[in-house]
Nucleic acid binder design. Sequence first.
DNA 1: CTTACACGCTTTTTT
DNA 2: AGCGTGTAAG
Length: 681
Amino acid sequence: MDREIKPYILKRPAEEATPPKLSLDYAKELNPQQLAAVTAVDGPSLVIAGAGSGKTRTLVYRVAYLIDKGVDPASILLLTFTRKAAQEMQHRAGLLIGARSERVFGGTFHSVANWLLRRYGRPIGLEPGFTILDRSDSEDLINLLRAQLGLNEKEKRFPRKGTIAEMFSKCANTLQSIEEIVLGEFAHFSEHLEALDKLKRAYEGAKRQRQLVDYDDLLVKLRVLLSQDEGASRAIAGSFRYILVDEYQDTNRLQADLIRKLAAPHDNVMVVGDDSQSIYAFRGATFRNIMEFPTLFPGATIYKLEENYRSTQPILNLANEVIQGAAEKYSKHLFTRKLDGPLPVLVQAAGENAQSRFVAQKILELREEGVPLDEIAVLFRSSFHSFDLEIELSRRDLPFVKRGGFKFIETAHVKDLTAHLRVLENPLDAVSWSRVLMLVEGVGPKKAQDLIAAFAKAERQDRPPGQCINEVLREVSGRSGRGLKELARVLEEAGRVGTMTPAEQVNELYAYYLPILKEQYDDYPKRMRDLEHLYTMAERYERLEEFLADMALEPPDASVANVEAGERDDERLILSTIHSAKGLEWQCVFVLWVVDGRFPSAYSFASEEELEEERRLFYVAVTRAKQHLYLTYPINEYDKGTGMILSKPTRFLDSVSPSLLETWALVEERGGREWGPREWE
DNA sequence: CTTACACGCTTTTTT
DNA sequence: AGCGTGTAAG
């Protein structure tokens, strides 16, 4: 029997329907200053956007406006501070003008440079499969070379690997020589200048030879490419006709120069930022970029966004007073129409645990009052400042996620497993090789280096490098022989080109690594779950190269334990370093450890410039709050680092009029409960 | 000569 | 918790 077949129409998603042309009423959706910036004509423009003044909104509408006017989305370059920010803007632009926005080229400076270098980098000696070194990888490589050059003979105190990496990084980001950096900022190591210079050359040579690229190199090499290879330079600069840069106050000299070069053919650059929120000087950023933009791009138009849509007047009053003390800034005056709201509160706690208990208790109260948990954030200067609070929150079953600080990808077991993936992708990667080899029983630093040297020797033109390496591994006899043969087997298995997805490769290597993991860590069950998490992340990729690059450039910031704690409840409290809270906002914000010595950190006491940066950091923290702001400071805390007893609130409140703050002191409840949670444990 | 392991010291912020 | 250093064991 024949059945009648009825057609059922599958609709195209709404976004793909023909988008309206210039249908947005820009004048209605934006205030006059925002509108002026959004509809600015071609040429350079600088948007000074105070905290909460609708900076993202302005950028999103600008993108929409350009596309609406007929600009090809693919010719718009949107440089943001995190890839998340780029995605969010693309999404919001999509809501305005449809799917065309997806073709906007957006990301961080580093991810854009990564993309361009893989595509155009050959002329300057970069193969598309190059490996990105994260900070600890580059430290490891520096350490290796230092040993090889015999520079760790300890006659005089030689800088640690971390310090050396910092020096090299500063050179790259501030466009200065090693001599300028050492004499200027590390004068106590100036006697080692010659050795450091030699080490720096060795480091650069080793990276070049082995197709390794550290974070700074991504930018440095792009700059080299733009100035040395005319073909690539024309192709790149020609494909971006409009450049938008977010968070311009946190760019460094190198990045400013890149923008200058990318925009050379047309000068269509709009940079957006707030000099008062510049908080990345430690990695070479300088708010002078924003001050000097009009010099770099003569004829730039300046727009100022001064209406704050985020915070109440009492919070803004405090913020304005705090930043009043800053030495150098574009003058701007923030105002709001939300006149009423509670005064910010300065809370004195008898100690760190009292502070934690206050925060936890207050959060429970706020939740009773109807404030959702994900509208509350706890901010702090340094990642470890929240350890005690984290324990307190777990005890009370308050779900939270922590942002900033230690990254998933940086944990030892995840690094171990990815090192295996990386040697498959780039057999020249000596840093990963040494990590991989040292995991084998009976192999230490010496044998690992010998093996890596043997790989280079065994290499022959007529065969793939992996094969030569495996032969070397198989020939080893003695204590480590068995382990190395096993390693060769699994690498061959996982390395079959083209037949395996990244996820399958992870799986293969996981099976090999598991016994090593169990041997090494007592808490291996937790770590196993992290590695399974790595597997699910790998499933999203088709190519190993892409997976590894993304892991280095945009590492997921929570370890699995945290994520799970959060997923029990879709509402979760945010704990975050102030740096990671940049650009975000909450109904209620707590700032921990607002005590002189922690905030500003005692490290910054010596330098006026660093103190200024801490002040701006405090300003950023305060301006995250919409309604409620609690600043807490424990007293009588002994600081091991400096030997000081910390008791005084941050100096940034010294000049603030008392009428702008409520002050509370915590008192223990009398009677019933004589014990604190500490003894109860 | 190497590897493995124990102990004390120091710890900012991140692409 | 991780790094560098010193020491015992292979």
